[in-house]
């Protein structure tokens, strides 16, 4: 890396023949000489945080101090872990890019309110430490860090993270007294009113319950160009397609396409988790295929497995496929008939 010698252009003053003092300030640097002022990693992460505000507000309203506890533990542990990792590897701190906080919030929001403190904490350490830093930090990881953390605690603490773990009758929080909408349906066949699912006054992982909040934040992300629209679109198309077929096969079922869309972290995952740029494909075409893939795996899991957390597995599986998708959706260079890589 010594070869990139001119990489600190602004500070270097090169004029030796400085008769006039005005010329001494002139510096050199490589082209292009200016960049997009509204496009920086920090700003992207800030936009994600802004988009998460409605989701966080709903979670605070529905789960009250359970949500506060979950999010605080995740944020503090993630920041701590990232700082410790960079220090251990003797690298410059990477906290300023804001990605640790984003991971923390996504992880926190995808946990059940009832999960004990050590679940959030261990999940965070695994998310940052194993999900991101061992790969070499931001941009190098193959899997979505938050989902790595969540998958770990899901398996390690199967008891508290299972479907029944969501319930906790003896608190003042209403939502916690029932099972999640998907579970109620699985076990009893009863349908949660779509209205409740839209506004989010149901049980579930603390960030996933409100379709409204997820859509609001999601549209903001897409509007800002931070989340690639191809991914949520792909997911939603796949789910609507599958759901419609389900309705056609089984017209009596009360569980409609809308129930599919509004339940079990689908929208939260489609807009906030699957759209993680690092772990999704590079080209627009690839991202759309990625979205479709997430949607299909999710519906497969919902139809044939007992896990309401289909989203997590769907994203992780598609993450693993991303490099492959990248390979076959590599853009054709201008003027080239066939790409040499394929």
């Amino acid at each position: 890396m010594e070869k990139e010698k001119k990489s600190e252009p602004v500070s270097k003053s090169v004029l030796k023949s400085a008769k006039e003092e005005e010329t001494t300030r002139i510096n050199v640097g490589p082209s292009p000489h200016f960049g997009h002022i509204h496009s920086t990693t920090r700003l992207m992460m800030t936009d994600v945080l802004i988009a998460l505000v409605p989701v966080i507000l709903v979670s605070l309203y529905v789960f009250q101090w359970f949500a506060v506890k979950q999010l605080m533990i995740c944020i503090l542990t993630c920041i701590g872990t990232e700082a410790a990792c960079t220090r251990m590897r003797n690298r410059q701190s990477t906290l300023y890019d804001g990605s640790a906080v984003v991971t923390a919030l996504i992880l926190g929001l995808s946990l059940p309110a009832t999960a004990p403190w050590y679940v959030a904490m261990i999940g965070s350490v695994v998310a940052i430490g194993i999900g991101k830093m061992v790969f070499g930090g931001l941009g190098m990881n193959l899997f979505n860090p938050a989902m790595v953390g969540r998958a770990f605690v899901m398996i390690a603490f199967a008891g508290v993270m299972s479907a029944s773990g969501y319930e906790l009758a003896s608190t003042g929080v209403d939502a916690l007294s029932q099972a999640t909408p998907l579970n109620i349906f699985k076990q009893t066949g009863a349908i949660t009113p779509i209205y409740d699912m839209f506004w989010g006054v149901t049980n579930g992982s603390i960030g996933e319950t409100s379709a409204f909040a997820c859509l609001l934040g999601g549209f903001y992300l897409v509007w800002r160009g931070v989340a690639a629209w191809e991914i949520p679109l792909g997911v939603i198309i796949a789910v609507i397609f599958w759901g419609t077929i389900g309705t056609i096969i089984n017209p009596e079922s009360q569980w409609t396409v809308l129930h599919h869309l509004f339940s079990g972290s689908l929208l939260f995952g489609a807009f906030f988790i699957a759209t993680d740029p690092v772990t999704s494909p590079l080209s627009a075409k690839g991202r759309f295929q990625f979205g479709i893939g997430v949607g299909i795996i999710l519906m497969l899991l919902r139809s044939f497995s007992g896990y309401p957390e289909g989203m997590m597995f769907a994203v992780l599986l598609m993450n693993a496929l991303s490099p492959l998708i990248n390979r076959w959706t590599i853009p054709k260079p201008f003027g080239v008939k066939t790409s040499r890589i394929l």
Partner: peptide, 30 residues
């Protein structure tokens, strides 16, 4: 002639693999 304001650069971070460069490249490279 640019001023300090235009040439200022933010700190470099890891590649986000966001694909913006792929979308922008007029030669359709990666």
């Amino acid at each position: 002639v640019l001023t300090e304001n235009e040439v200022r650069k933010e700190q470099e971070t890891g590649c986000l693999r966001c694909g913006r460069c792929v979308d922008a490249c007029p030669m359709h490279l990666v």
